[in-house]
Nucleic acid binder design. Structure first.
Length: 580
RNA sequence: CGGGGCGUGGCGCAGCUUGGUAGCGCGCUUGCUUUGGGAGCAAGAAGUCGCAGGUUCAAAUCCUGUCGCCCCGACCA
């Protein structure tokens, strides 16, 4: 491959685009890789298209290597496939819907579980056919509430999605492990820094689930990591380690007059001042009321959640914890309907008699004593003991996570970072097979319900993530595997530098390298150097002022090292650099 | 959907308070000079000032409405 900048369809921008905020967005636009056409929708210019194809190639090679077989579904799909699983309505506004000329409903596929399941059902019927894993690399459409950060979160994006079909749980585990290994190879080859995090399976249903998160300040996901034992988890999936149960005898419950103490801080101050208890916010028990709506029905359950007073309820964690239920704020009118719940002074002592479910943070262990509401305006209760004065219906992971919280596996302090989800693997189980009635006929003549795994890689997002993780003040610094070319040869000077640069470019191309040569006449050296740095090819060879002395300059874009080399050795030295 | 900001040549912006000739930088075209860090000089091309209505002798500027976009929060590869 030999690209000549004199004819390459490329225009670099000197200034950041006004609508870009994150580095990958700014740089990909400035370097002429992508252009915006609508919110969350981008065109790929020649260099960007090459990078995207390179990522695609890596993903495809690794999927093929693990034995998955590539298929391709349409992006334009009829409604009925998504009707069977209820997702035509469940997916809500995120689904791009359209009608054909006859008025029939269609959609642009946001994901393809239904299609894969249906395809396997149509072709396979015997246990001898299984297991099988299929994948596709496809453009997906999601009408995101808020597309953002350029290509990082678009409404149209390229995704590799695959599905494994197995006859039993062990088979599913094996398929899952194979994917895990394939993903590790993929992201290693792409040069992405990532963590494999425990995840919630969320609305998709299913059990084991892990996310591949690329640590990045602009990331939208929060994850914790333990630097001692290697544990990592999405914030929603972190489990809280419970302290041991308290066996010591506790004083009897005591109701205290606590007027004007609407906040935890005011309560703590008041109690310490008037009753000398010496408590901290962590000794109080804060009780939050929420409504949990069951999707697709009118059923709404009232739920009270007890968390230590020094912590907020993390709504995302709460959502994950009550999934597939949808938590909603308990409004003033809801309080009006539940006179037993005294806003600001709720204590768990009365919940059982009110018939309200009470779930507590795991720190609220049996025997622990708390200062909490007394279910009367202006009154709180002290020495309220779990297991004695109230009986929780269970625990819930809804309290916020903080840096320094203890690792659930080894009890070392956890760190908190942000990351971008680039891959997600999980064991779906039989939800879609159930919906589709996907069975294999077993050796005994009886049907076996197939169990599935679902696995995704954000292909176009990976391009942005690499740009996000690998750039400097001057521009992009692609890893060789996905760079638009191996080497950028810059010819600059008023003698025959451009001719020589072109000759070397042709020689390197014939030796199997992918080459970009800057053969633009009359363009000043500064412009060429700046463009070279912006574009970010890993190796740069400059044929410039040293030509008369038979000298070229070899640069490494990422490290910034520069070396003068004899022109006669240029081809070999570039080859060596590109093969290192 | 809630909150904030912005719509002016291809890109980045000023002008709007106090109505009166549409301006700057980059990019683009032509010529000459320049060639190791986004060159210089000269001459050019290119704008329904988001859209609609209103006020006015006169609207980018004032008023009303409307559309769109970006950013921050609830959703996800």
């Amino acid at each position: 491959m030999l690209l000549r900048m004199s004819t390459l369809f490329l225009r670099t921008l000197r200034e950041d685009p006004a609508d870009a905020e994150v580095p990958s967005h700014k740089l990909l636009v400035r370097a002429g890789y992508i252009r915006r056409v609508a919110p969350g929708i981008y065109s790929w210019l020649p260099l960007g298209k090459i990078v995207l194809e390179n990522v695609t190639r890596v993903v495809r090679e690794e999927m093929d290597r693990m034995g998955a077989q590539e298929v391709l579904f349409p992006a334009l799909l009829p409604r009925d496939y998504y009707e069977a699983t209820g997702r035509w309505t469940e997916y809500g506004d995120t689904l791009f819907r359209l009608k054909d000329r006859k008025g029939s409903d269609y959609l642009l596929g946001p994901t393809h579980e239904e299609m894969f399941t249906d395809m396997v059902k149509g072709e396979y019927s015997s246990y001898k056919d299984y297991p099988v894993t299929l994948y596709q690399i496809q453009t997906k459409y999601r009408d995101e509430a808020r597309p953002r950060a350029g290509i990082l979160r678009g409404r149209e994006f390229v995704m590799k999605d695959s599905y494994s079909f197995d006859l039993d749980d062990d088979g599913l585990k094996h398929s899952y492990e194979q994917h895990r290994e394939a993903y590790i190879r993929i992201f290693d080859r792409l040069g992405i820094d990532y963590r494999i995090c425990f995840a919630m399976s969320g609305a998709m249903g299913g059990s084991a689930s892990e996310e591949f998160l690329a640590p990045c300040p602009t990331g939208e996901d929060t994850f914790v990591a333990c630097h001692n034992c290697g544990y990592a988890a999405n914030a929603e999936a972190v489990t809280t380690s419970a302290p041991p149960a308290v066996t010591a005898e506790q004083p009897a419950l005591e109701v205290l007059d606590t007027p004007d103490t609407p906040t935890i801080e005011s309560l703590v101050d008041h109690v310490n001042e008037h009753f000398g208890l010496g408590i901290t916010p962590a000794d109080t028990l804060k009780n939050i009321v929420v409504k949990v709506r069951t999707p697709g029905s009118d059923k709404v359950e009232t739920l009270v959640i007890g968390v230590p007073g020094d912590r907020e309820v993390d709504f995302k964690r709460l959502e994950a914890a009550v999934a597939p239920g949808i938590p909603e704020i308990f409004e003033a009118e809801d309080f009006a309907r539940h006179p037993g719940l005294v806003r600001g002074y709720i204590g768990p002592q009365v919940l059982a008699s009110l018939g309200i479910t009470y779930l507590v943070d795991p720190r609220v262990v049996t025997g622990s004593a708390w200062v909490t509401g007394a279910n009367e305006p202006g009154k709180h209760a002290a020495h309220v003991v779990a297991g004695r004065d109230f009986q929780p219906d269970g625990t819930i992971e809804a309290a916020e996570i903080r840096a320094g919280d203890l690792c659930p596996r080894c009890a070392h302090p956890l760190s908190i970072d942000r990351g971008i989800e680039i891959g997600h693997i999980f064991q779906l189980g039989r939800k879609y097979a159930d919906a589709a009635g996907l069975d294999a006929l077993g050796p005994d003549g009886k049907p076996i319900r197939v169990t599935m795994g679902s696995y995704g890689v954000g292909v176009s997002r990976a391009v942005a993530v690499v740009a996000e993780q690998r750039h400097d003040a001057l521009g992009l610094t692609w890893p060789r595997e996905i760079a638009p070319a191996d080497v950028h040869i810059v010819g600059t000077g008023k003698e025959n530098q451009i001719e020589v640069a072109t000759q070397i470019a042709e020689e390197l191309e014939s030796r199997g390298l992918r080459v970009l040569v800057d053969d633009r006449p009359g363009v000043s050296p500064g412009v060429k150097f700046k463009d070279s740095e912006l574009l970010g090819l890993p190796t740069v060879l400059i044929i410039g002022r040293g030509l008369a002395q038979g000298v070229a300059e070899l640069r490494d874009r990422a490290t910034g090292t520069k070396e003068e080399i004899p022109l006669a050795e240029a081809v070999d030295r570039v080859l060596a650099a590109c093969q290192a």
